[in-house]
Amino acid sequence: MSQEIILSAENMSVTFGSGRKAFRAVNDVSFFVRKGETLSLVGESGSGKTTIGRAIMRVHPISGGAIRWKDTVISGKVNGSAERALRQKIQMIFQDPMASLNERAKIDYIVSEGLYNYKLFTTEAERRAKVEAALLEVGLLPEFASRFPHEFSGGQRQRIGIARALVMEPELLIADEPISALDVSIRAQVINLLNRLKKDRGLSFLFIAHDLSVVRFISDRIAVIYRGKLVELAPAEVLFEHPVHPYTRALLSAVPVPDPEIEKEKCLVVYDPAQHDYSKVAPAWTELSPGHFVYGSDKEIAGWQK
């Protein structure tokens, strides 16, 4: 993994609605993604993790802060050609492989739609070659190109979704719960594929998920988000071994471990936001140890540092 930062969010906020009805889905969030690493965003539904992914894709406008791609700001007003270039470099993989593929198009078209839009080929033969290469890369046969999505199983469809993203030669993949809809036996295949792409192609991933067992296996760093706020961000193993924020602890205690002995003795930690006393000192995003950030007041931080 190199140290080059390709994507960074600085104090980013996303607000839906305005005036009295305004709702801050993402509140003052900062993080970055290095080249060739997997950063995971975990949190429960409604915490704003998907909104962050969409804000980076410029689907939702942000209401505060900035998002940077390498050295250029990509939030707010961006000129047309820059936006176009960006859309090619950042691709997305969606949660539900049943819903994210056009049922009426053949795989050949689904995979090459981006190529058509960006005119990334000169001859028909070149386009075909690109589609074939993408299919092979995700472990599908080139002859599948002439079939329709309904002829494939869930795991295969998810691979088609990944092939469609890869054919654009992206640098960052935003994967929004890509394995939640898959069966246990298929899940391992897709996890392996994502890991291999990271290793072989040096791709970066922003992995959005709620299944912490998978997240631990594939991430380099993990960010925990609660109600639109990042509460903790740390290298994967550090977060699992030494979680400090009470919400992170609650989340980790809720993950079922496939070991009856541990699982039957475990007691559940329930997070109660009322336990923080932020009336006097406002909490801040603080670096606890190198690379391990947590959101808390000075007093809490001092307690966690032990």
Partner: peptide, 10 residues
């Protein structure tokens, strides 16, 4: 969600 899941299982 995992947190809710744990509560329901309990």
């Amino acid at each position: 969600d995992v947190t809710i899941q744990a509560q329901i299982l309990e």
